[in-house]
Design a protein around this nucleic acid. Structure first.
Lengths: 190, 190
DNA sequence: TAAAATAATTGACTTTCGTCAATAAATACT
DNA sequence: AGTATTTATTGACGAAAGTCAATTATTTTA
């Protein structure tokens, strides 16, 4: 049984849909339960959805020469998708993994593009989602261009303490673009 | 005298505006000529526009401890803005500089948000611009997370040869996140 | 075209981070 | 609680990139 009240409230903060619009949107949304370790998306697959985390903790990572590079962590009410794959209709190079049991809301691309034809509000929603995703990427890229590993870690301490509390340290190291050993040493010297 | 035919064609590839919509959009567009070295945006200012390069070559950079970190280069028909500053109404940490004489088209935020209220097509346009900007950031971030400096340079060779041909090498080094000396050595070993 | 200014290369040296291996700490399992 | 597994720390060492200074190449400008 889907309980979408929380989502409805969230969406209405972005753009105020009328009841009819909400019903249309609602019908496109799948609510999916995930067990720990579940892969919502795997490398090679096309990402044909955008979604929002209802509960749980998810990560977005790729692999290189056997080891994993974490690009993002997602918490409740975060948007999630391989939006590059989604937008370009090409296979993803990433995996999306449930780090613990949780629930997600998904909206398929085909459905979403149908919505875009329906009303101005859905386009507005799509625009704002894109903007949010842009902001996240931009801030993260700036961190890499401007800051050293140590500075990136300190920024994380300030801006995303929730990540530090909930995610194993070796994944945080990967997220910061360094090895676990280096992160351990940075922490010692702070 | 504004000659916007080229721009009109470009916009119509994204979303087909009717004549009335195009007239409204047109009225919001400023065409601005830039001399070499002109700063279209300076650190501390708020970026209240998005634009498209008509002609010329521009760079987007920030400064740290006196030296410059280049985040992006923009060529004709590229979107440009400090879109983070634009979206969040906060001061920019970046500069936009004309690297040679050129011309740009600018659209102010206030005007753009007025357009968003007007019709579905403008929202669509805004969405697609956001998507494009997202894609660029995402690809660049992935490069930093996944590739070494040498690999990033080789990717640039393949994907953006135009940058290599037109931009001084020390700025390319900055764009790759390394020093000019290191880039020089990488090039020697390839 | 000559001089000046800017950009690129090279060498010597330092710093930072990665790698590998061992150990310690924390967590999960029965 | 006690064992097994996973995660974090530490040390020794090597590789890669940064820094500083000098030199060479290229471009600009007078």
């Amino acid at each position: 049984m889907k309980n979408l009240e929380h989502l409805k409230k969230h969406i209405n903060n972005i753009v105020s849909l009328n009841e009819e619009e909400w019903d249309v949107l609602k019908n496109g949304i799948q609510e999916i339960s995930c067990a720990k370790g579940d892969l919502i998306l795997s490398e090679g697959e096309e990402c044909d959805f955008v979604g929002i985390i209802k509960t749980g903790l998810f990560r977005f990572y790729t692999t290189k020469k056997g080891n994993e590079k974490v690009t993002e962590f997602w918490f409740p009410m975060d948007y999630f998708s391989d939006y590059r794959s989604f937008l370009t209709n090409t296979p993803s190079n990433f995996n999306i993994e449930a780090m613990r049991p949780g629930t997600i809301w998904k909206l398929k691309r085909t459905y979403m593009y149908k919505l875009y034809e329906e009303s101005v509000n859905f386009n507005k929603l799509g625009r704002i989602v894109s903007e949010q995703l842009f902001l996240k990427k931009a801030l993260r890229l700036d961190g890499f261009l401007k800051n050293s590993p140590k500075e990136r870690y300190l920024q994380l301490l300030i801006k995303d303490p929730n990540i530090l509390q909930t995610v194993p340290q070796y994944m945080i190291a990967s997220y910061l673009g360094i090895t676990p050993e280096t992160l351990s040493r940075i922490r010692k010297r702070v």
